[in-house]
Computed example of a mutant assay.
Amino acid sequence: MNLTGRERQSINPPATRAIYDQLHFSQATRVGDLIWVSGQVGIDPQVMKPADGVEAQTRLAFENLRTVLRAAGASLADIVELTTFHVDLRGGMAEFSGVKDAYLPDRYPSWTAVGTDQLALPELVVEIRAVAVAGSGDA
Results as ranks from 00 to 15, higher is better:
Pro13Trp: 02
Ala15Met: 15
Ala15Asn: 15
Ala15Gly: 13
Thr16Val: 10
Arg17His: 13
Arg17Asp: 09
Ala18Trp: 12
Ala18Asp: 11
Ala18Val: 13
Ile19Thr: 07
Asp21Ile: 13
Asp21Gln: 13
Asp21Arg: 11
Asp21Leu: 13
Gln22Asn: 14
Gln22Met: 10
His24Phe: 09
Phe25Arg: 07
Ser26Val: 07
Ala28Asp: 00
Thr29Asn: 13
Thr29His: 07
Thr29Lys: 10
Val31Phe: 01
Gly32Asp: 07
Gly32His: 02
Leu34Glu: 10
Trp36Glu: 15
Trp36Tyr: 14
Trp36Thr: 15
Ser38Pro: 03
Ser38Ala: 12
Gly39Thr: 08
Gly39Ile: 14
Gly39Met: 10
Gly39Arg: 13
Val41Asn: 07
Val41His: 06
Val41Met: 08
Gly42Asn: 01
Asp44Ala: 02
Asp44Arg: 00
Pro45Thr: 05
Gln46Lys: 15
Gln46Phe: 09
Gln46Leu: 15
Val47Lys: 10
Val47Phe: 06
Met48His: 12
Lys49Gly: 07
Lys49Cys: 12
Lys49Thr: 15
Ala51Tyr: 01
Ala51Phe: 01
Asp52His: 14
Asp52Trp: 11
Asp52Phe: 09
Asp52Cys: 14
Gly53Ile: 03
Gly53Asn: 04
Gly53Ala: 07
Val54Pro: 08
Glu55Met: 05
Ala56Leu: 06
Gln57Ile: 08
Gln57Val: 04
Thr58Glu: 09
Arg59Ser: 05
Arg59Glu: 12
Leu60Ser: 10
Ala61Leu: 03
Ala61Gly: 00
Phe62His: 00
Glu63Gln: 14
Glu63Ser: 11
Asn64Lys: 01
Leu65Ser: 00
Arg66Asp: 11
Arg66Asn: 11
Arg66Leu: 08
Arg66Thr: 10
Arg66Pro: 04
Thr67His: 08
Thr67Asn: 08
Thr67Arg: 10
Val68Asp: 00
Val68Trp: 01
Arg70Leu: 15
Ala72Phe: 03
Ala72Pro: 05
Gly73Ala: 00
Gly73Glu: 04
Ala74Ile: 02
Ser75Arg: 13
Leu76Glu: 01
Leu76Ile: 03
Val80Lys: 04
Val80Phe: 04
Val80Met: 03
Val80Arg: 03
Glu81Gln: 15
Glu81Val: 15
Glu81Cys: 12
Leu82Tyr: 01
Leu82Arg: 00
Thr83Leu: 06
Thr83Trp: 10
Thr84Asp: 07
Thr84Tyr: 04
Phe85His: 08
His86Cys: 02
Val87Leu: 09
Asp88Ser: 13
Leu89Arg: 11
Arg90Ala: 09
Gly91Asp: 06
Met93Val: 14
Glu95Arg: 09
Glu95Val: 05
Phe96Gln: 01
Ser97Gly: 12
Ser97Asp: 15
Gly98Tyr: 05
Gly98Pro: 06
Val99Asn: 07
Lys100Gln: 08
Lys100Gly: 06
Asp101Phe: 11
Asp101Ser: 11
Asp101Lys: 12
Ala102Val: 05
Ala102His: 12
Tyr103Ile: 04
Tyr103His: 08
Tyr103Ser: 05
Pro105Val: 06
Pro105Asn: 09
Asp106Leu: 10
Arg107Tyr: 07
Arg107Gln: 10
Tyr108Pro: 05
Tyr108Phe: 12
Ser110Thr: 15
Ser110Lys: 14
Trp111Lys: 07
Trp111Gln: 11
